[in-house]
């Protein structure tokens, strides 16, 4: 464990909590892409199957459970409790265009052709594109509430910190996981455009982020 990975995990947890509380307290999921949240729940489900077979540490187990619970709780808020406020019209990204290539690639490019390994690989590839429906929805509506942008900021920060974590681990331990790193770099690149808008608009105190 290193400071980059720990702070990355904390940012990830903060992002998920920010989103959950935003929906829970505003009793609305307007502007939130339910599809992205479904994809994240699928990422955690397919990645954390080793929850019962491999014990890494208390921290690892606790964080996996917390992420799974919060992911499914957020999905249930969007699709059940506050479904009237769900803007399915703007959340129109075709997720099959993500799931099919990701599933295909996880069968082609993996470390070993076993169910657990393929599902883990699937979750890694899926995580790098899971935010696209949300980013697409923001471009479609042309705006995002500032709390939603803070959620995206912490998600992007978590991914950026994971890149630093891999540099550190490569330098310290010679650790290098090609699938995770390549996929993580792709994922972080998707946030660059958002980061630019976030720093130039939201942090200038304009509150809402409106796209040009």
């Amino acid at each position: 464990m290193n400071i980059f990975r720990l702070s990355g995990d904390v940012c990830h947890l903060v992002a998920i909590i920010i989103l959950f509380l935003k929906i829970w307290r505003s009793k609305s999921c307007a502007g939130i892409s339910g599809k992205s949240q479904l994809l994240f729940a699928l990422v955690f489900t397919t990645r954390y199957l080793d929850l019962f077979t491999a014990f890494i540490s208390i921290y690892n187990t606790v964080m996996k459970v917390v992420f799974l619970v919060l992911a499914y709780a957020t999905v249930s808020l969007i699709y059940f409790r506050f479904r009237k406020s769900y803007d399915s019209e703007s959340d129109s990204f075709r997720v099959e265009f993500l799931l099919v290539p990701v599933a295909g690639l996880s069968f082609l490019e993996n470390y070993s052709f076993t169910p657990l390994e393929i599902l883990w690989t699937f979750s890694i590839y899926l995580e790098s594109v899971a935010i696209l429906p949300q980013l697409f929805m923001i471009t479609k509506t042309g705006e995002a509430e500032s709390i939603t942008t803070h959620y995206l900021f912490f998600l992007g920060l978590y991914r950026t910190l994971y890149l630093a974590n891999w540099v550190w681990r490569y330098h310290e331990e010679g650790f290098f996981d090609q699938i995770a790193v390549v996929s993580g770099v792709v994922q972080t690149i998707f946030y660059c455009d958002f980061f630019y808008l976030y720093f130039t608009r939201v942090l200038r105190g304009s509150g809402k982020m409106t796209l040009p």
């Binding site: 080793d50 890494i56 690892n60």
Partner: peptide
């Protein structure tokens, strides 16, 4: 030999 990821990351 390829360094198998210990899958210790979240």
């Amino acid at each position: 030999e390829r360094h198998i990821n210990p899958k210790d990351e979240l």
